[in-house]
């Protein structure tokens, strides 16, 4: 290795002098050596990645966390005009069985009036049941409006006391600093009155 450094520095040898040791032809022994080293390095690389993966994957949600990633909710006991809150993936989920008036109001809003335009039909699977993640899209507080005694804001839906965001009967942002409507999570009706969240 140090020999090459020496030859680099050597500027005095005239170009016309032919070098006695041919560099162009690589001996068979050398190609075998190169292959050996390459193979070893390759195996080392495979080994390193194989070892790294379990550690990286250990950070992914563990089996017990994943088991709680889906939650079944029985809606039988929820009456018209009643709201319940369930916990899903550590977050509150608002489930409201809307009254006919609330549904009518939600459907009759002009999309142009909305900061985050979304028709009510896009936010519900069954119009009676409004299901959304109860976290204000501004800075993450839990809006009020689930309890009968809670303030519901100017649009009859939910009101976030932290910075004064008002949500309507479809959970859409109408007034206040929040930029987006309350998020509708992934869910499906497994039966008439049973949903699976997530």
């Amino acid at each position: 290795m140090s020999a090459t450094a020496a030859t680099l520095k050597n500027k005095t040898s005239p170009k016309k002098v032919k070098k006695t040791s041919p560099k162009k032809t690589v001996s068979k022994k050398e190609t075998r050596r190169e292959f050996l080293y390459l193979a070893a390095a390759g195996m080392g690389g495979i080994g390193a990645i194989s070892v790294a993966w379990p550690f990286i994957d250990s950070w992914n949600p563990a089996a017990d966390t994943l088991a709680l990633s889906s939650v079944d909710v029985n809606l039988e006991a929820v009456e018209v005009g009643q709201s319940i809150t369930v916990t899903w993936r550590g977050k509150p989920v608002f489930i409201r069985r809307r009254t006919a008036e609330e549904i009518k109001e939600a459907e009759s809003v002009e999309l142009l009036d909305l900061r985050d335009p979304q028709p009510d039909s896009e936010r519900v699977q069954k119009t009676e049941w409004l299901i959304m993640v109860g976290i204000c899209t501004h800075l993450g507080c839990v809006p009020l409006g689930q309890k009968v005694t809670d303030p519901k804001g100017d649009y009859g839906g939910w009101f976030c006391p932290c910075h004064g965001s008002h949500y309507d009967t479809s959970g859409r942002i109408r007034k206040g600093p929040a930029p987006a409507n309350l998020i509708v999570p992934e869910y499906e009706f497994t039966e008439d009155t049973m949903i699976r969240l997530g």
């Binding site: 250990s58 563990a62 089996a63 017990d64």
Partner: peptide
């Protein structure tokens, strides 16, 4: 140490959680 809890109420259980639930634990 990212998964272990050193309180006597949870230590044994946290190790078993590593063994059973944590990916490659």
């Amino acid at each position: 140490a990212m998964f272990y809890t050193s309180d006597i109420g949870y230590a044994f259980e946290s190790v078993e959680r590593i063994m059973r639930d944590v990916n490659y634990g």
